[in-house]
Design a protein around this nucleic acid. Structure first.
Lengths: 187, 187
DNA sequence: GTCTATATGTAGATAGAC
DNA sequence: GTCTATCTACATATAGAC
């Protein structure tokens, strides 16, 4: 049923995903999304009953992308430690974007947690998925404090993404990736 | 000259500082600040020529508070490592607020970096001050990679504050404080 | 399904009485 | 210095032609 027709809907979600990331949710207007997608804003309400509803679609799209990444890593990387390294190096692989706009999941959560309590749980799911997966890998290394360590890993990655975006600093991302990699090696 | 008269100005800045922290800059309106401070919004333009101008005053107030903290720690704590612990435990001391709204400096920077390029430098100063001070303490411990380590410390603290706020989780703050304290002990 | 025109609310900002 | 009334712009959202 999904992806049946509705090409316009897909283009709206794609443009909104990009703009909510680069400019933030509150500061992105339907007019902005309309211009970026080439679809008049009046049309939006045929696909989404509100801006909140568009946000739900954007988060759903991000969640699918995250699940796809994790599934691929599970399939292609046998060792738990190597999987964690792959996760941590997402920072380096996406350094260009992160050094401009931070982490898509982290920055959106930060924004929504202050103002959209009704979306907190939904947005948080993006971080939960990463945390649960990391916790599984760390537990496979024989650590019984896997939960606390997984949270710490996520904190380090989110902190690096936040400061990388704030400072617009590529080298900060590289240095942090090294620090976090060393932490994983010590696990 | 400062604090001469202008009691209203001080109340506006105080209310705005609080609201920009708890609700964010963009989602706080002058009407909100007016209600919180008890001063009609029309009056705001006698003291501030724009909302941006009010933001400048809020950041200046926060900077003074940060400088005051660091000065007090310098005066009261002789050992560099103990100073760093004092800094890290700010997380725990402010856990109640942080578990609701994150770090005042970090969340404001995260918000402004996406949308207010003209304020990036000014807001960043709050983080720079912490980083420079940390770097000095770490260098005093004999580490010549003090810059990179200070940035890493800031990343961990910011990541913990961000996730603490997102999850509204007091125990996360406590666990992260422990992790970061252990990191300082290993320096 | 797609688009234009428009309604409605609220934001930041101003004018001017007191 | 303080406050009320108001302007203007733009946000989300709707109505309805095609």
């Amino acid at each position: 049923m999904r992806d049946k027709g509705h090409a316009s809907r897909g283009r709206i979600v794609e443009a909104a995903t990009d703009l909510f990331y680069r400019r933030g949710y509150h500061t992105t207007s339907f007019a902005d999304v309309a211009q970026a997608s080439g679809i008049p804003k009046g049309n939006f309400y045929y696909y989404f009953k509100s801006k909140d509803d568009l946000l739900v679609a954007v988060i759903a799209e991000r969640l699918e992308q995250i699940a796809g990444d994790l599934g691929r890593w599970n399939a292609e990387i046998p060792e738990p430690r190597a999987r964690l390294v792959q996760f941590a190096e997402t920072l380096q692989r996406n350094a260009e974007a992160i050094s401009h706009w931070g982490c898509p999941a982290g920055s959106l959560n930060g924004e929504l947690s202050k103002t959209q309590p009704d979306h907190r749980l939904r947005a948080r799911r993006m971080l939960d998925v990463y945390r649960e997966w990391s916790e599984g890998q760390i537990r496979a290394l024989g650590r019984d404090d896997a939960h606390e360590l997984a949270v710490h890993l996520l904190c380090m990655l989110q902190g690096a993404s936040l400061l990388g975006g704030i400072y617009g600093d590529f080298t900060l991302i590289t240095a942090e990736t090294r620090q976090i990699r060393a932490w994983i090696d010590r696990l």
